[in-house]
């Protein structure tokens, strides 16, 4: 399994991840090796087999749903407690709209 530098750069871009050249080379190499192992999946016959997204167990449907009523949350102060930058009850971020 070969990954081109362009493909690797595109994946890092999708993942919002800045990687140094050295990291990019190392991770691309690791990915190639891991994806080669993953090709083993193609040997498994999955004809007519449903994809399993979640562990399912027998349970009545209704008890898992709570009443849809408002209730107190952690509050603005709690939510902002760990913000690197906040002000006026909001998270502050670098400017996103150019004037």
């Amino acid at each position: 399994m070969k990954i081109s530098p362009e493909q690797a750069a595109m994946v890092a871009d999708l993942a919002n991840l800045d990687l140094t050249n050295e990291e990019m080379q190392r991770i691309t190499h690791d990915l190639e090796e891991i994806l080669t192992h993953m090709e083993a999946l193609n040997r498994a016959d999955t004809t007519g087999v449903e994809p399993m997204a979640q562990v399912l167990f027998d349970a009545a449907e209704s008890p898992l749903l709570r009443a849809d009523e408002p209730r107190p949350g952690i509050g603005v102060e709690g939510a902002l407690l760990n913000a690197p930058l906040s002000g006026a009850g909001h998270f502050k971020v670098p400017k996103v709209i150019e004037r």
């Binding site: 993953m38 999946l41 193609n42 498994a44 999955t46 087999v49 449903e50 994809p51 399993m52 562990v55």
Partner: peptide
């Protein structure tokens, strides 16, 4: 594909 194989393992 992996999710289908997960069904097989389960």
């Amino acid at each position: 594909k992996a999710q289908r194989v997960r069904s097989l393992i389960a």
